[in-house]
Design a protein around this nucleic acid. Structure first.
Length: 596
RNA sequence: GCGCCCGUAGCUCAGUUGGAUAGAGCGGGAGACUUCUAAUCUCUAGGUCGGGGGUUCGAAUCCCUCCGGGCGUGCCA
C-alpha cells in the first residue's frame, strides 16, 4: 500500500486572516502557559493549540476546543478550564475580539471586532492578485500530466487530467512554488508501429489498393483522415514503396499531425506545457555519443545495488521498497520494458534539479505507482515523487450514458466536447469533483445557461460586480469599454466608512455584508489547503460559496446609494469580491467575464 | 486470493485529516422583479453517513470485521 502524502504546506505570509489565526493561537498558548505556571492548570505537556472556524456563524468567527482536549490530562472539567482561559483571553485580546464566550461542552468562541473583520476589504484591494499567495518557497515542482500516446485524438479523460494538472500547477504557483508543466510523449512503443500500420492500410485503401487492416489496428475515422491528408499532399507514390519504408514515413507524418492536434486542443483550453518530453530521446544514444539514457538509468540502479538477473531478464528489486513483486527492466529478448524507460525519465527529471515531481496518471495505471515510487527512492529521491490517480469520466447527455466503443473507434473526443460546451464549462465541471472520484459529466447541464449551471452562477457574480462598477463611474451598465479594475481601484473607503459594513447584524443587509466579508477572508486558507492536498475542487466549492455570499449581498444591499460613506464601503466590498472571484476562477483556469 | 479507490438526502456530491444540531446544488412544495443583470434571492420538506463492533470527553472522519460497487494484480504500453 502507499500512503497519500501531503508535504508541508508553503507558509502564507501576506494574509491578515492567517495572522489573526496566529495571533489567536499565540494568545491561547500564552494563557495556557500562564495557567500552568500559576499552578491553576496541571499539565505536563502543552497540547497543540489550534483555532478553527466554526460551521455555525452564531458561534463566532473562531473557536477552540483546547479545554476539551486538556480536560483529561489536567483532571478538571472542560468548562472550568474554558472559563479560566476565556477570562485571560478577554484581556489579552482586547481590541481584536469583542466577545469571548464558553459554549457547549467547553468550546471557547471568539467574535472578532468589526474593524478586524472589515479589514479584509483593503487587504484584498491593496494586494490584488497577490491576495492569498504564499511566500516563495524556493521549491521547484514539476507537474506531468496528460502524457497520452500520440496515436489518436485526446479523449475526454485526457481533458480531465489536463484541467486537473494545469489547475494544480496554478494553485501551487500561487501558493509559492516554482512550477513546470510537462507532457511525456510515449512515442517509442509498439503502439506507434500499429498506428503507422493502420494509417498505411487506410492509405492503400484510399489509393485503390487491396490492404489487410491490422488485427489490433486503430479503427477510428481519424486514421482515415490522416491517410487522406498524406495522399492529398504526397500522392499515391507510397503504395509502391516497401511496407517498412511506407510505415516508417507515415509514422512520422501521423505523429506530427497528432502532436499538432494535442497542442491545438490543449492551447484552446488554456493549457500550455513548458516541456514536451519525447520517450524516444531516452532510447537514443547519449549526446556525447555515450550510452542511451535508458541504459544509464539502469546503470544507476545497478550501482545502488538493486538489480539482479533471473531467467535471462534483468530485474529491479522493488520489493525492497514495499512493492508486491520485483519488476523487469530488460526482458530476456534484450528489449527494455516501458518501466525501464520510465526509470530513465524520472532520473532525468531529478537531474534537472526538481525538488518534487507530481505525476498524474489515469486510474488504470494505479498498479504501477508503487514500482515507480520505489525506483525514484532507489535513485536517491525517496518521497520526492507523488502520483495522483485521476479517475475516469462518464459522459451523459440528458441523463443517458454516451456509449463509446474502443473496438470500432467510435467516440466523443475531447475536442468535440470542447466545441460543444466551451472551455470554461468543461474545465469547471472536470474540477468540481475530488480527483479520486469518477466523474459523471452531463453535456446538457454543462451547456445550460441557467442557475442549474454552477459555472455561470460564479461567473455571473463577477459580471454583476463589473456592472455595478460601471454604474458607479456614471457609465452605462453595459458599457464594456469601462476599465472596471481602474474604477475599483479609484474607489477609496476609509476605516470609518468600512466600519459601516455589517454594522446592523441581524438584518438581511448586515448579515449579507458580514457573510461576504467572512467568505473573502477564508480565501488564503482555501488556497493553502487546495495546494497541500492538490485539490482544485476545494476552489470550485469556495467559488460557489463566495458567489452565493455575493448574490445575497447584491440582493439585500444597494451598492450605489446616495450616502457617500456607505456607498464607498459597499463599492470597496464589491471590488474586493471581484478580485477574489477572478483569482479563484483564475486558479481553475476559468475566465471571469465582465458581462454576460 | 491479494492490493488500491469508493459507499453521506430522491439525484450529483462537499464535509477544512477527531469537534457543537452532518451541509450545498439539482429535483419537490411556497414566495420575491418599478431598483446596480431574476443567469438572482427568501422560506420549506427530505438522513440509521452501507451494516456491526471498537478506540474517547466527542466518530461521517481513526482501528477491526462483514456487505456492495469500480480498478489493478504482464518479461504489455
Amino acid at each position: 500500500m502507499w500512503a497519500r502524502r501531503y508535504p508541508e504546506a508553503p507558509t502564507l505570509t501576506d494574509t491578515g486572516r492567517v495572522r489573526v489565526r496566529e495571533t489567536l493561537n499565540a494568545a491561547i498558548r500564552a494563557e495556557l502557559e500562564r495557567a500552568v505556571a500559576d499552578g491553576r492548570l496541571a499539565l505536563d505537556v502543552l497540547p497543540n493549540v489550534s483555532v478553527e472556524r466554526p460551521r455555525d456563524p452564531s458561534h463566532g468567527d473562531w473557536a477552540t476546543s483546547i479545554a476539551l482536549v486538556s480536560s483529561k490530562a489536567a483532571g478538571a472539567p472542560p468548562r472550568e478550564i474554558a472559563e479560566m482561559l476565556a477570562a485571560g483571553l478577554r484581556e489579552r485580546l482586547a481590541g481584536v475580539a469583542t466577545a469571548i464566550e464558553v459554549a457547549g461542552p467547553g468550546f471557547i468562541n471568539i467574535r472578532l471586532a468589526r474593524d478586524v473583520v472589515a479589514d479584509v476589504v483593503e487587504r484584498v484591494r491593496s494586494l490584488g492578485d497577490a491576495y492569498g499567495a504564499g511566500a516563495r518557497s524556493g521549491r521547484r515542482v514539476q507537474v506531468e500530466f496528460v502524457s497520452a500516446n500520440p496515436v489518436g485524438p485526446m479523449h475526454v479523460g485526457h481533458g480531465r487530467w489536463a484541467a486537473l494538472g494545469d489547475s494544480i500547477a496554478r494553485i501551487l504557483e500561487h501558493a509559492g512554488d516554482t512550477v513546470e508543466r510537462e507532457f511525456y510523449i510515449n512515442d517509442a512503443g509498439v503502439q506507434m508501429d500499429m498506428f503507422a500500420a493502420s494509417v498505411s492500410a487506410r492509405y492503400l485503401e484510399l489509393a485503390g489498393h487491396e490492404a489487410a487492416f491490422p488485427e489490433d489496428g486503430y479503427r477510428g475515422a481519424y486514421v482515415t483522415d490522416i491517410a487522406r491528408e498524406i495522399l492529398d499532399a504526397e500522392g499515391p507514390c507510397w503504395a509502391d514503396a516497401s511496407a517498412a519504408e511506407r510505415e516508417a514515413h507515415f509514422k512520422e507524418q501521423a505523429y506530427a499531425q497528432v502532436l499538432m492536434h494535442l497542442t491545438r486542443v490543449l492551447h484552446g483550453m488554456g493549457v500550455d506545457f513548458d516541456v514536451w518530453f519525447s520517450e524516444r530521446t531516452l532510447h537514443a544514444p547519449g549526446t556525447d555519443g555515450g550510452p542511451a539514457a535508458i541504459e544509464r538509468g539502469i546503470a544507476r540502479l545497478k550501482e545502488a545495488g538493486y538489480l539482479f538477473e533471473h531467467e535471462g531478464a534483468l530485474w529491479f528489486r522493488s520489493t525492497d521498497f514495499g512493492d508486491d513483486k520485483d519488476r523487469v527492466l530488460k526482458k530476456a529478448d534484450g528489449s527494455y520494458t516501458y518501466f525501464a524507460a520510465d526509470v530513465a525519465y524520472h532520473a532525468d527529471k531529478f537531474d534537472r534539479g526538481l525538488d518534487l515531481v507530481i505525476d498524474i496518471w489515469g486510474a488504470d495505471h494505479h498498479g504501477y505507482v508503487k514500482r515507480m515510487e520505489s525506483a525514484v527512492a532507489a535513485l536517491g529521491h525517496p518521497g520526492q515523487l507523488e502520483v495522483i490517480i485521476g479517475q475516469l469520466v462518464n459522459l451523459f447527455r440528458n441523463g443517458e450514458v454516451v456509449r463509446m466503443s474502443k473496438r470500432t473507434g467510435e467516440m466523443v473526443t475531447f475536442e468535440d466536447l470542447l466545441d460543444e460546451v466551451g472551455a470554461d464549462a468543461a474545465r469547471y465541471f472536470f474540477l468540481r469533483r475530488s480527483t479520486d472520484q469518477p466523474l459523471d459529466f452531463d453535456i446538457g447541464l454543462a451547456k445550460e445557461r441557467s442557475s442549474d449551471n454552477p459555472v455561470y452562477y460564479v461567473q455571473y457574480a463577477h459580471a454583476r460586480i463589473c456592472s455595478i462598477l460601471r454604474k458607479s463611474a456614471g457609465a452605462d451598465t453595459t458599457d464594456e469599454s469601462v476599465d472596471v479594475a481602474a474604477v475599483g481601484s479609484q474607489t477609496s473607503a476609509d476605516s470609518a466608512a468600512l466600519a459601516l459594513l455589517g454594522s446592523e447584524p441581524g438584518t438581511l443587509a448586515g448579515d449579507a455584508e458580514l457573510g461576504l466579508l467572512r467568505k473573502l477572508a477564508e480565501f488564503p486558507e482555501v488556497v493553502e489547503v487546495a495546494a497541500r492536498q492538490r485539490a482544485p475542487h476545494k476552489l470550485t466549492t469556495y467559488a460557489e460559496e463566495l458567489a452565493s455570499a455575493f448574490h445575497q449581498f447584491y440582493t439585500h444591499c444597494q451598492v450605489v446609494v446616495d450616502d457617500p460613506a456607505l456607498r464607498a464601503a459597499r463599492l470597496a466590498l464589491a471590488d474586493a469580491s471581484r478580485i477574489v472571484l477572478a483569482r479563484a476562477l483564475g486558479l481553475l483556469g476559468v475566465s471571469a467575464p465582465q458581462r454576460m
